[in-house]
């Protein structure tokens, strides 16, 4: 990694502890992590190792119990709910395993959703939504409802929703988890294409077939980073 590369995300000693009645569960312990602009990072590890918790904190869906988290150079670990919502809306794009499209909204409206919360004028929204849908090859289905689409198509729409607001980073949580291998491959190809276009991507997956496409893979175990593998190393390992 070159020194002049801009650091987009930095975590210093982040921990996450869940308190439920008398049980304390340490989901993350002493996480130190950096992700640079334009980088494609994969977070891997077995079930229950803390991958999704880490991604939730990265995406400001959850907050750390301790430690520091800098997004684009600004500390974000202690922001209030409103500020976090604003950052999620403008700087982060999410892709979920279960697509999480809203069944009562059309494809167009689902993709438009983040922009409506931004207060963007209708004409601009329309243009941006159209562009995003074209990028994922779903522009011909704007009036469809999610239930009228296949799983792969739904995930493409979800990707369009994630990138419509031109976020700093795309966070993908097991984006292929609910798809068959063919559709899974297509979504991964789409992410790679976005990456080639300059997008910063952080993807959680436990499937090595997909993590190898990343520039770097961070391996988690029991809430700790146990290993980091660069792309060159990954190819040599395989």
């Amino acid at each position: 990694m070159s020194a002049e590369t801009q650091t987009l995300l930095r975590m210093n000693g982040v921990t996450k502890v869940f308190l439920t009645d008398e049980v304390e569960t340490h989901a993350l312990s002493g996480i130190h992590l950096e992700i640079n602009a334009g980088e494609y990072v994969s977070i891997a590890g077995p079930s229950g190792c803390g991958k999704s918790t880490l991604l939730s904190i990265l995406g400001l869906l959850d907050s750390p119990s301790d430690g520091e988290y800098l997004l684009n150079g600004n500390p974000v670990q202690d922001l209030d709910l409103g500020e976090r919502a604003r950052i999620r809306n403008r700087e982060i794009g999410f892709i979920f395993q279960a697509f999480n499209l809203i069944g009562d909204l059309t494809v167009f409206e689902n993709v438009e959703l983040p922009l409506t919360y931004r207060g963007m004028p209708g004409a601009e929204r329309k243009k941006a939504v159209q562009e995003a849908l074209e990028r994922v090859g779903m522009a011909h289905r704007v009036k469809h409802y999610p239930s009228q689409l296949s799983g792969g198509q739904q995930q493409r729409v979800a990707v369009a929703r994630a990138l419509v607001g031109k976020p700093l980073i795309l966070l993908a949580d097991e984006p292929t988890g609910n798809l068959d291998s063919q559709n899974g491959e297509q979504v991964i190809e789409l992410l790679q294409e976005l990456h080639r276009g300059g997008a910063t991507i952080c993807m959680v997956t436990h499937d090595q077939r997909y993590s190898k496409h990343a520039d770097r893979t961070i391996n988690l175990f029991d809430g700790r980073i146990v290993d980091e593998v660069e792309a060159a190393q990954q190819s040599s390992a395989h």
Partner: peptide, 16 residues
């Protein structure tokens, strides 16, 4: 709840 969570995750302010 899921729909609401999705809206929140894409940055909907609570008041909205």
């Amino acid at each position: 709840r899921k729909e609401i969570a999705v809206r929140l995750s894409v940055g909907a302010p609570r008041w909205r």
